[in-house]
Design a binder for these strands. Structure first.
Length: 878
RNA sequence: GGGCGCUUAGCUCAGUUGGCUAGAGCAUCUCGUUUACACCGAGAGGGUCGGGGGUUCGAGUCCCUCAGCGCCCACCA
């Protein structure tokens, strides 16, 4: 035999993967005239290693392998993301560990180190993706910093700029003093914190704050216009107040943003360092003053506190105010949430800064013949079903996000990323000139002063937003800048063949970051949606249901460890089994083990068949059903193929897999193979195995291909590129007969277990089916004999219409009597249920006729069953 | 403050448009060394589907409500 006793994934996986790659099995073929199926792989961040979250890409691999086997031209385009801030944070951390920082090593050295790090990360990660069995087209591997992709970024920026959709302005932004960069609203997370909440006397008012260190420049008190307590004060009234560093003149402002029920209902504002305060100041045209610098230290306005960082200054400021008698109270149990950078975890200090923004409200996007804003386009494509999001409840989340969307800050003060394609220089009149373009400007002209490029880089998501199409641009043609972008897209074979893509499959956590922004940028740049269907999977959490987190190393499961222990297929199937779309799952070793066992089951099915059929079988020979088991298994195959295909077509992966698992194990292995030990049909066995391998392949590519290759039935073919199974016809009556045998065998097994009878005999009075299938029944039910006999005194089977009885003596049968009584009680119960249903005139008149007929039939059967059960019970009751 | 989700067997979870006796994996119990597999086989037990109300011939599934848990969004001074 070629197949060893147990499936050892480790000895096959690498070779199988290498075989696929060497045969070009993953390659897409745009030249072919075939239906396309395309998935852009969400490019993992080049930050080290892949996680179990990435193992969920298995869903994409399943779709791709299924499409490929259906004869479609399937493209799974892989890539990686330069992950600007995430990588930047890692490099800065490493520099800090070396006792240096980015300013000391300089931009060039910083980028050199970064490139070295991401290069290593990439190699590791690509290896991991291969280990997971991903059948991506590596010849089309892309990277968000590729030259062609950089061109697309610059093209997009430039077009948006000229359309007035990108602007530069002084606006309040989320500033991370640790990484010294701005971050977008979506990158800010809120963390609850217990803090001290101080109330101070401020002129005639009491004001409360958790951040006294920002209060130096405060010279406005704000209250709600309808707050009766402060009705005496009018907008614009001024007063003198003793404050931290002496007297200040403050002005009264009335604004509805103030909640009269919070604190004292009065607050002072710090527009430079707070979003709400900024908005109030904008509404009333108030001045703004910076208190904290970009490193998080107090500015000279703080006098003696100048140069201190916040944590140092805060208690000292409070102490000073207390000494001056201005501290009214301290609430120690105040809980509020502070803004933190999701990458690097630095505490956000809002700042006003000159930054680049994408305007999401300006109606300057051409879409479907109308001028719309980015917001409107993003809403339109979902509302009009150009793009469908699954599960559909995420559409609501999506709309809600858009409703709250503000202009997108896209400039970052970090070095790693796409440099902003904007250049400045002093013009002849001393004014600053700005140049925005896909390529750098010529240095000569004007005053002769050189153009200097904006030092900032773009938000990572700005380049990822172009992913579906920038990756399909012809990499060589992209070097030719005499081609417009439009021409470039027109002449790019891949773009023409593969865009829009078919499905975007990702975790729900990047719906806003990425998916929404791909919709924004792609509709704008290409006039196409980036994908037609979005399928969102859930997060893989730790076993205890909490998030896997590096801060709890024991909670983190490394997919490579799992693969080494259980095999890739077990991991893949374990992550799919019993998991609903969009729902998070808890890591479960039990599920992995169950699927390791399933892989081994497949292996042993193959071993059995190899043993019986031999390894020189020709699959081209049509399988001819002969026995009733043959007909039955062909019917099961037919049903399974149909159900699995339908479920895969409808993104019901878990259900498809469930059907497959039980078909293989319960139907094929437990019944058909067992039946084959009585009557063997090599053709159907071989066909059954072939079909199973094909159905299993998208889920468990390695074990299925390993079996296929080891058997070598189809010389020099690959399972991965074989055709999805076509079911054969079968005979319904014969299928039914096997079902009847299953009923009989199951009942005998139940009785045998109950009475612990060793190999009883089955008698019948010339029943044709039982006589014909005597050996089959005997073997399956573990009987010593099945034979025709006269009026037997044994125990009649009640579950079948075929008259037969187990040849047992009365004493033995006594042991079964209680079970028989229980059974007939259950039957009585179901009879009364069925009767009450049928006695309802509204059921009979309103329910579908088939259903009513079915109920009647069931009642009839139940009654027959009961009478048999009772007859047997009466016969042996003492 | 808005929005979303979850609550189904001891545990972790499935259950498309309402339909017949509610399923799986793991765990549990009883048997079993039959030449594919103990990573196995045969059999069994276990759930008033969170509580209450409603719509319907019929509700785990639809509606209302209450409770507990979780997540997301928002300018909590």
């Amino acid at each position: 035999m070629n197949l060893p006793k147990t499936y050892e994934p480790g000895t096959y996986e690498k070779d199988i993967y290498a075989l696929w790659e060497s045969k070009g099995a993953f390659m897409a073929h745009p030249e072919k005239d075939a239906e396309r199926f395309v998935i852009s792989m969400p490019p993992p961040n080049e930050t080290g290693t892949l996680s179990l979250g990435h193992a969920m890409y298995t869903l994409q691999d399943i779709m791709i392998r299924y499409a490929r086997m259906q004869g479609k031209d399937a493209l799974w385009l892989p890539g990686t993301d330069h992950a600007a801030i995430a990588v930047n944070a890692i490099i800065e951390k490493r520099l800090a560990e070396e006792g240096t920082n980015k300013h000391e090593v300089g931009r060039e050295e910083f980028l050199r180190r970064t490139k070295e790090f991401v290069g290593n990360s990439r190699d590791t990660m690509l290896g991991q993706m291969r280990a997971m069995g991903f059948s991506a087209d590596w010849s089309r591997l892309r990277y968000t910093l590729d030259d062609a992709l950089n061109r697309c970024v610059n093209e997009t920026f430039t077009k948006m700029y000229h359309d007035g959709l990108i602007y530069r302005g002084n606006r309040i932004v989320n500033w991370d003093p640790n990484l010294e960069t701005t971050v977008s609203d979506d990158e800010v997370v809120r963390v609850e914190e217990k803090a001290q909440f101080y109330t101070f006397q401020y002129g005639p008012f009491q004001i409360s704050t958790a951040r006294p260190e920002t209060k130096f420049g405060d010279k406005y008190v704000v209250m709600h216009p309808d707050d009766k307590r402060y009705a005496a004060y009018k907008q614009g009234d001024t007063f003198e107040a003793e404050w931290i560093n002496g007297k200040v003149t403050a002005t009264v402002i009335k604004d509805e943003a103030v909640d009269p029920n919070f604190g004292t209902g009065v607050m002072t504002i710090t527009p430079w360092h707070d979003h709400t305060d900024y908005d109030i100041a904008e509404r009333h045209g108030l001045g703004k003053q910076q208190i904290i610098d970009f490193q998080g230290k107090l500015l000279p306005i703080a006098d003696e506190f100048s140069g201190m960082n916040i944590t140092e200054a805060r208690p000292k400021i409070v102490a000073k105010l207390k000494d001056k008698g201005l501290l009214v109270s301290i609430d120690d149990n105040y809980v509020h949430s502070i803004a933190v950078n999701d990458r690097g975890k630095g505490i956000i200090e809002p700042q006003i800064k000159l930054q680049w923004f994408v305007d999401v409200n300006k109606p300057a996007v051409d879409w479907k013949g109308k001028r719309q804003s980015f917001k409107e386009v993003m809403q339109d494509v979902i509302r009009n079903k150009d793009i469908r999001i699954l599960p559909s409840r995420f559409e609501k989340t999506y709309f809600h996000w858009i409703d709250n969307l503000r202009d997108w800050c896209i400039s970052r003060q970090i070095w790693w990323g796409h440099r902003i394609p904007v250049w400045y220089r002093k013009g002849a009149d001393g004014q600053e000139e700005t140049y925005v373009g896909v390529r750098p400007p010529e240095n000569q002209g004007g005053t002769g002063q050189a153009w200097e490029q904006d030092p900032d880089t773009l938000d990572t998501w700005f380049s990822s937003a172009l992913w579906t199409w920038s990756t399909l641009v012809d990499q060589d043609l992209a070097k030719d800048y005499s081609l417009s972008l439009e021409d470039l897209l027109q002449q790019s074979t891949d773009f023409q063949a593969y865009h829009p893509t078919s499905v975007m499959e990702s975790g729900w956590d990047i719906l806003f970051f990425w998916i929404a922004r791909m919709i924004l940028a792609t509709t704008y740049m290409t006039g196409q949606v980036p994908f037609k269907t979005v399928y969102l999977h859930g997060m893989v959490r730790a076993e205890d249901g909490k998030k896997m987190s590096k801060s709890r190393p024991e909670s983190v499961v490394n997919p490579l460890d799992v693969i080494a222990e259980y095999g890739t297929d077990a991991l893949r199937m374990g992550l799919i089994m019993g998991v609903a779309p969009g729902m998070d799952q808890n890591w479960s070793k039990g599920r992995i083990e169950a699927n390791r066992n399933f892989a081994n089951k497949l292996w042993n099915i193959a071993r059995f068949i190899e043993d019986k059929v031999g390894n020189d079988h020709d699959l081209k020979q049509a399988a001819k059903p002969e026995s009733i088991a043959d007909h039955w298994i062909l019917t099961k195959i037919q049903q399974s193929v149909r159900k699995i295909s339908q479920d895969l077509d409808n993104y019901r992966f878990s259900e498809a897999y469930d059907t497959l698992y039980h078909f293989v194990w319960d139907d094929f292995a437990d019944w058909y193979i067992e039946a084959s030990k009585t009557y063997i049909n090599k053709g159907v066995l071989a066909y059954g195995l072939e079909t199973i391998l094909k159905l299993v392949h998208p889920f468990a590519p390695f074990v299925s291909e390993a079996i296929w290759q080891t058997l070598g039935w189809e010389k020099s073919t690959l399972l991965i590129t074989s055709a999805w199974p076509q079911p054969l016809g079968s005979n319904t009556a014969r299928t039914q007969e096997f079902e009847e045998i299953r009923t009989i065998v199951s009942e005998i097994r139940f009785i045998s277990t109950s009475i612990k009878a060793q190999k009883p005999r089955l008698h019948h009075k010339g029943d044709a089916l039982i006589a014909a299938q005597a050996d089959l029944i005997k073997n399956l039910a573990g009987l010593s004999d099945v034979s025709q006999a006269g009026a037997g005194s044994g125990l009649h089977l009640t579950g079948t219409s075929h008259d037969c009885c187990l040849d047992l003596d009365a004493v033995t049968i006594q042991r079964f009597l209680q079970q028989l009584a229980d059974k007939s009680e259950a039957t009585k119960k179901s009879i009364s249920q069925l009767e009450s249903r049928l006695s309802s005139s509204s059921y009979v008149s309103k329910a579908p006729k088939e259903l009513v007929d079915e109920t009647r039939r069931q009642l009839q059967e139940a009654k027959e069953l009961l009478s048999k059960q009772q007859a047997e019970y009466e016969r042996f009751k003492q």
